[in-house]
Simulated scan of single mutants.
Amino acid sequence: MSKRQKRKNVRRQSTKSGLAPGTPVFIGERKRETTRIDIIDYDDAALNEFPDTTVEQCTLLAQSETVTWINVIGLHDLGMIELIGKRFNLHPLTIEDLVNTNQRPKAEIFPDYLFIVLKMMSYSETANSVDVEHVSLILGKNYVISFLENEGDVFDTVRARIRSAKGRIRAMPSDYLAYVLMDAVVDHYFLAVERIGDFIEDIDDRLLADPQPDDVQEIHRLKREILVLRKAVWPLREEVGAIEKSESPLIHHETRIFLRDLYDHTIQVIDMVETFRDLLGGMHDTYLSSVSNHMNEIMKVLTIIATIFIPLTFIVGVYGMNFEHMPELKWPWGYYLIWLVMAGVGVGMVLFFKRKKWI
């Protein structure tokens, strides 16, 4: 997200000042023109898909005994979001948070549903940065509603598992579907963190071998990417833990085991993020140290050269004086002797430096 867009989001956040709690105000970047609803309805025996359907169809399917995944793409249509909220008896504060893309990850437990907020992330090779998208999940008795900002998501593998009936997903209740969606989001955290880790390792090797001024900008860019990941992952640990430990009847005993595994995955991501954060924190000092050491090596060579030439310059200066009576001036071998003395002085100083291990 650009700095201009971030400033725009801050201004939109300020428009909520003075409004009653629960008043929905879309805060974020409008990433598509229209809001669309796609449905996948399934059980262990049958599968039905309803692309680009209506809110009425969502309500009818959610009341059946099958598991219904309702995927809402586009958050800017407040009228449709509010209509979905009314049909599924969502709290006004939940509707407010659904359309606020700046909302931090959290989990709220209501009598009839669970409200889960996530940050979906993927590393963009073209933009060379982490793409962040706001994702919200509503877990009900026989349904899961996912709210996305844009068309692309990380749930293609989930759809493929449902369509192919691989594994246990078609035989499990809706809470397992919610877990699978959360797990897909966390799995892409690993991909993003590992990609950033590759850049960190490359820069770390380059700083020790041949540091360049552009490396400082790259370090600051990676610091910002790690900060974005850290803000998304740290609340997720508490979120998953709260869902797993909740006494909500919507979370079955079979699913709690998988939620504990998801909790462990969040801890692993946090450890990776903190490790890379510490590495980046010391890279600026490493860069300065490498540049300083490189400069010291250059100054060392120049100093040795200057030190060797100091006595030679002295000898040349002595015999460059304009005195008439100097004994060696009229000696036939004086010129060659002076060259021999200067060469001996230079070689002797080099041997002395090596003995002292200065070179």
Results as ranks from 00 to 15, higher is better:
352 F>T: 09
103 Q>E: 08
295 M>G: 04
86 K>H: 10
80 M>V: 14
168 R>W: 11
234 W>V: 11
311 P>E: 04
338 I>C: 09
14 S>M: 14
345 V>N: 03
39 I>Q: 01
153 D>F: 00
273 V>S: 10
226 I>G: 03
310 I>K: 13
77 D>Y: 12
28 G>A: 12
238 E>N: 12
59 T>R: 14
258 F>S: 11
263 Y>P: 03
135 V>W: 00
277 R>M: 09
351 L>C: 08
8 K>I: 11
187 D>T: 01
290 S>L: 05
232 A>H: 01
157 T>V: 14
64 S>D: 10
44 D>W: 08
107 A>F: 01
165 A>E: 06
71 N>F: 05
19 L>H: 08
279 L>F: 08
264 D>L: 05
231 K>I: 02
272 M>S: 15
278 D>F: 06
74 G>M: 06
17 S>A: 14
246 S>A: 12
312 L>I: 10
91 H>S: 05
356 K>W: 13
221 R>C: 02
29 E>G: 01
80 M>Y: 05
195 R>V: 12
292 S>F: 01
80 M>S: 08
48 N>K: 13
189 Y>C: 03
4 R>A: 13
187 D>P: 04
281 G>Q: 12
352 F>N: 11
325 H>Y: 14
94 T>L: 06
72 V>I: 15
23 T>I: 12
341 V>G: 09
315 I>C: 11
348 G>Q: 10
146 S>L: 02
174 S>E: 03
182 M>R: 02
153 D>E: 09
246 S>Q: 07
129 S>D: 14
166 K>H: 10
104 R>W: 07
216 V>C: 02
224 R>N: 09
179 Y>T: 10
189 Y>N: 05
351 L>I: 11
31 K>I: 10
105 P>G: 01
128 N>Q: 14
49 E>A: 13
266 T>D: 04
204 D>I: 02
75 L>N: 02
49 E>G: 05
39 I>F: 03
81 I>D: 01
149 E>V: 05
213 P>K: 12
84 I>K: 07
255 T>W: 11
248 S>C: 07
1 M>W: 04
276 F>H: 15
25 V>W: 07
258 F>E: 02
327 P>W: 09
22 G>K: 12
272 M>L: 15
110 F>K: 10
358 W>A: 09
160 A>P: 02
326 M>L: 14
139 L>E: 01
314 F>I: 03
112 D>I: 05
57 Q>A: 13
198 D>F: 09
259 L>S: 05
34 T>W: 06
158 V>C: 13
124 S>D: 13
96 E>T: 12
244 E>Y: 01
179 Y>E: 05
166 K>D: 11
123 Y>T: 03
115 F>S: 02
346 G>K: 04
321 M>G: 04
222 L>K: 06
89 N>V: 02
26 F>N: 12
152 G>F: 03
255 T>D: 06
198 D>Y: 10
185 V>W: 00
22 G>F: 10
299 M>P: 03
75 L>I: 00
208 L>P: 00
319 Y>E: 02
222 L>V: 01
267 I>H: 13
150 N>Q: 12
357 K>Y: 07
